[in-house]
Simulated scan of single mutants.
Amino acid sequence: MGAEAEEQPHGAAVVADGFGLKGPRGWAFREVSFRAGPGALVAIEGPSGSGRTCLLLALTGRMKATEGHAEVGGVRLPRKLGAVRRISALGQVPGVSELDPAFTVAEHLRERVLLQRRFDGSVRALLRRPAERAAEARARIDEAVAASGLDLAALPKGERTSVRDLERLEALRLSIALALIGRPRLLALDDTDLKLSDADRAEAWALLRSVAEAGTTVLAVCAEAPADAQRITTIADAADPDEPEEAKEPAEPEEPAEPEEPEAEPEPTEAKPATAEGDTADTADTADDTEEGAADALAETGRS
């Protein structure tokens, strides 16, 4: 070719136009439109239950949108979900891609490399000698760990530290490292700032900013976006403009209440003389009635 082709950026540009997803319980999100260039840091913010995670999964090809369209790296959604999944990777997303608390850090890293080789490796790579494959795997792990800022030596037991013993920020770094092993063009993660102190939150955003500056486009769900990120705000319980509001039926007028008749005064009764025998008899009758009533109630319930 006469002219050299322009080198395409590593990060994937993300474009959404009227993007929406409707489920059995109504709209998870709708009318989402934005443009983000390669290597951008995009923060999806909003209250819990406003469809942030659904939007994240739809933009990475894990959920199928029902309205509008989007493009990730020039691949159109919702038509080509598989193609978008191949160029994107998920960090932590509760219920979708979670760390196993019983696994150690080293076990997680080795497992991800094996999965990457199994599903994304070429035939030529599979035919390499074991020593070459091991060196390639180690190089991928070291590259991803360095990019995530995960200091293995600073962990309580180094690589042998269990996930359950990691601090929240270190677990976030590990999930990012696992996602970066596949060298994705788009990195997506959920609950970025959940349960983080102010200092840890600043570190987390600095980490994602460095990943974006290295060329990988980042989508991060959060409660509050940093000032330098491109913001997409989701709104909880958005009304459907195509569905008219239900008309309220006018209340029927209440009929005037009829005046109540005055109650007749009770006729005077003769007072019985209080005698010891009379009092005893009345008390006995009352006690008998009470015992019989209790027995009948227990019998009816099957507990007598």
Rank of each mutant, 00 (worst) to 15 (best):
A36D: 02
L41G: 01
I141M: 11
R86T: 08
P250Q: 01
G149L: 05
P38H: 03
L187I: 10
I87E: 01
A147Y: 01
G46E: 00
S210F: 07
F119H: 14
E203F: 09
D237V: 02
C54L: 10
R173V: 02
R128N: 04
W205C: 01
T60C: 12
V93S: 04
P94R: 02
A239M: 13
E4S: 13
R140F: 04
L166F: 03
S33R: 07
R86C: 03
A225F: 03
P47M: 04
A12P: 05
L208I: 04
P9M: 09
E213T: 10
R128T: 12
D120T: 14
E6Y: 08
K64P: 11
V84H: 00
K64L: 11
F103Y: 15
A179S: 06
T60P: 04
E243L: 15
A247V: 10
Q8G: 14
E277H: 08
A238P: 11
A106R: 11
D17R: 15
A297D: 12
L150I: 09
S197H: 08
G11I: 02
S122R: 11
A154E: 07
E300Y: 13
V211G: 02
E292H: 12
L207C: 06
E265L: 14
E263M: 08
G73K: 01
A229K: 00
P226H: 04
A36V: 05
T66S: 11
A214L: 08
G215I: 14
A295L: 15
T216H: 03
L208N: 01
I181G: 00
A135C: 10
S33F: 05
A89P: 06
A247I: 02
D17S: 15
E249K: 10
P266M: 05
G61M: 02
E167G: 15
A227M: 09
A179G: 04
R168I: 15
G293F: 10
F19N: 00
L166D: 01
P266H: 04
T275M: 04
G39K: 03
E270W: 13
A179L: 04
G51P: 05
S162I: 10
P268D: 11
P156T: 03
S97F: 06
E67C: 08
L186P: 05
H69D: 08
D282P: 03
G121K: 02
A271N: 06
V145R: 03
R185Q: 14
R76W: 08
L207F: 05
T104Q: 01
Q92R: 13
P156A: 02
T275W: 06
V145F: 04
D142V: 09
A223S: 14
L150T: 03
R25K: 14
L90R: 01
R164C: 07
T216D: 04
A146D: 12
G61T: 02
